[in-house]
Write a protein that binds this DNA or RNA. Structure first.
Length: 614
RNA sequence: GGAGGCGUAGCUCAGUUGGUUAGAGUAUCGCCUUGUCACGGCGAGGGUCGCGGGUUCGAGUCCCGUCGCUUCCGCCA
């Protein structure tokens, strides 16, 4: 499967260059060479002029001497702007005693220039290439300049290497890659669609796929029993630091005749392999230490447990702290705030932090302020400390007899430890508890470092109550098989039905989402009926699947992995824009190309479209 | 749709309690400099202080509005 790369020399055109800049060494001294690249830095000494020439391989110092080039030549190179592209013909020289630069791979040699030519002149730059503090919008407007930086480019190159590794591993497991349409039909479920007007069908629209979900399932019905694709996905939703506002890529895969465990094995092999291969990639210099990986098979956590113990369905398991329910204890106290919250259907949740009794008073204040200001907590989290055999803290006085011991025991806490408590209603309370748990662990030095910590979250609920209280919504993927199948849909309270639906999480990020699919037409119809979609709409909007499921559909399932998030984790990045070559702004604009843009009337007329601004 | 942060020279920043002609570094241009490697030295040009309004004798500074970028909430099956 592996293809040996061609020797570098076969990709060098002698018209432009004989070597790449950073490939030259002392062994090449005396050789005539041709190089081409960018003017990275210039040091002008009035007579002799030094330039650091940069190409994709790196840097080499080239020397311009008046004895070889004349004053006209020196004048010309002095006036060639930084980042201009030049070609030079010269000779490799050894640097003299004390003149070498140990910081450069090519620091023992330099190129004495005999002739040079400017291939592409650069005007003054909008910003200094190496300036780390240039605002991002300016850098996006000149993204091609930004990509000249080693650290920026290396991350994009990592992305390519990760994709290559994924493809190699998928093929190795017997999968093949198939493309699916980019223009497809809008579907009523899920995110907002990007629409494309049809010229041949005035008034009708294509939608860009949010994922190749239905097509990959159709491949299964066709009997292609192992499909994958590095697939572009389009969703017209608002951005986050880890979420593109327009389009992103997934490793999309699907298999027939499988159960959940089979999908897990494939994902553990492929993603686990990719993480092993690139865990210690450090092209951008951000990793201070080697990174470990939790060995497969990865731990499985039921969705309900994850929500209770971590207040999140994508917990960061590098933090060892767990959340405990202590509602019953506070229901039997005279602390009216907690008591009333429990009485009105809320909960009190506690986080025991080992050793936190030694933290300074100011830290507790900081945590309280942060919880209120950044997390929107209605009050600072309460806490009780056990120190010198005594319980301390404003909330302690509301506890009687065995209650403080029960509280500490349940949280696994003892002498020297602190129990933090937050009260509120689910699900709002999770927005406070999840970041609080991770912060408490971080501040007390309890969180594991330098590890990719994987876990499967399983048994997602099939349905959730609708916001307006009437009926149910799919809480995840509508195409998942409910656990218990059609019978469960017919007989159970919808809120108790679990889906055969799973996520893979790593360090607080959702990396994979998948499921065993519902391939039975009656069960599909019933599931959508519970979610409020009438049968004729399902038959119309999912007509391909509906027809296919009547003509021999195998049991099947799969998953999709967010490529950007994988690369972000491997690159120690928290911003998805760093792992996309030409990213959009938060508002979905391409500042370099100027998209989106107005189009001329002729284009609109062809599409039978009139624009009416709100 | 909501909340927070940021916005002063091409770029990064400083700018006191509201007070003279808004400064520095870097980039650019000019001069000097033949061994530097973030080379160095001297000089010059470069500003609608995001935009609009208000308070004031006087606003970069205070107030209101607005725009842009960004982070979070909503949203993202």
């Amino acid at each position: 499967m592996s293809v040996a790369p061609l020797p570098t020399s076969t990709t060098l055109n002698p018209r432009y260059r004989s070597h790449r800049c950073a490939d030259l060494r002392v062994a090449d001294v005396g050789q005539p060479v041709k190089l081409a690249g960018w003017v990275f830095r210039r040091r002008d000494h009035g007579g002799v002029v030094f330039i650091d020439l940069r190409d994709a391989s790196g840097l080499v110092q080239i020397v311009f001497k008046p004895t070889l080039l004349g004053t006209a030549g020196i004048d010309a190179i002095t006036h060639t702007g930084l980042e201009s592209v030049i070609q030079v013909k010269g000779t490799v020289l050894a640097r003299g005693e004390g003149l070498t630069n140990p910081k450069l791979a090519t620091g023992a040699i330099e190129i004495e220039v005999q002739r040079f030519e400017v291939l592409g002149l650069a005007q003054p730059l909008p910003y200094a290439l190496e300036d780390d503090s240039v605002p991002e919008d300016l850098r996006l407007a000149y993204r091609f300049l930004d990509l000249r930086r080693d650290d920026v480019a290396s991350t994009i190159q990592l992305r390519s290497d990760v994709i290559a590794s994924i493809r190699k591993r998928m093929w190795g497991l017997g999968f093949r890659e198939y493309q699916t349409p980019i223009l497809t039909a809008s579907s009523p479920e899920g995110a907002r669609d990007f629409l494309v007007p049809s010229r041949l069908h005035p008034g009708k629209f294509y939608a860009l796929p949010q994922a190749p979900q239905q097509f990959k399932q159709l491949f299964m019905v066709s009997g292609f029993d192992k499909y994958f694709q590095i697939a572009p996905c389009f969703r017209d939703e608002d951005a986050r630091a880890d979420r593109c506002p327009t389009d992103f890529y997934q490793l999309d895969l699907e298999m027939s005749f499988v159960e959940q465990d089979d999908v897990f094995r494939v994902a553990e092999s492929v993603l686990g392999g990719v993480f092993e291969e690139f865990a210690n990639w450090n092209g951008n210099g951000r990793k201070a230490a080697p990174q470990a990986i939790t060995p497969a098979p990865w731990v499985r956590i039921a969705y309900d447990d994850a929500l209770l113990k971590y207040s999140s369905d994508k917990p960061d398991l590098r933090c060892p702290l767990e959340i405990v329910d202590v509602s019953d204890i506070w229901a039997n106290t005279e602390f009216q705030v907690f008591k009333n919250i429990v009485a009105s259907g809320g909960v009190v949740r506690a986080i025991g932090v080992k050793g936190a009794g030694n933290m300074p008073r100011s830290w507790f204040d900081t945590i309280g302020k942060w919880a209120q200001e950044s997390l929107g907590a209605p009050a600072a989290p309460g806490y009780i400390t056990r120190k010198d055999g005594k319980f301390i803290g404003p909330l302690y006085k509301f506890l009687d007899g065995a209650q403080p011991f029960e509280l500490f025991g349940r949280c696994g806490c003892a002498e020297g430890d602190v129990v933090f408590m937050v009260a509120g209603k689910e699900p709002a309370i999770h927005k406070i508890l999840n970041p609080l748990r991770v912060r408490l662990g971080a501040d007390c030095g309890l969180n594991e470092q330098n590890i990719y910590k994987f876990a499967w979250i399983v048994d997602f609920p099939m349905f959730e109550p609708r916001d307006d209280g009437k009926g149910y919504d799919f809480s995840h993927n509508p195409f998942s098989m409910p656990q218990g199948g059609l019978e469960a849909l017919n007989t159970q309270d919808p809120l108790t039905i679990k889906a055969t639906q799973y996520d893979l999480v790593c360090n607080g990020y959702e990396l994979i989402s998948g499921g065993i699919r519902n391939h039975l037409p009656e069960a599909m119809l019933k599931a959508f009926e519970i979610a409020g979609l009438p049968a004729d709409m399902v038959k119309d909007k999912f007509r391909g699947m509906w027809k296919a499921f009547h003509l021999g559909a195998p049991p099947h399932g799969g998953c999709a992995a967010g490529l950007e998030r994988v690369v972000m984790l491997l690159a120690e990045s928290t911003m998805v824009r760093e792992v996309v070559a030409f990213p959009m702004t938060q508002r979905g604009e391409d500042l370099l190309m100027g998209a989106p843009s107005v189009v001329d009337d002729k284009q609109l007329r062809e599409l039978s479209i009139a624009v009416k601004l709100k």
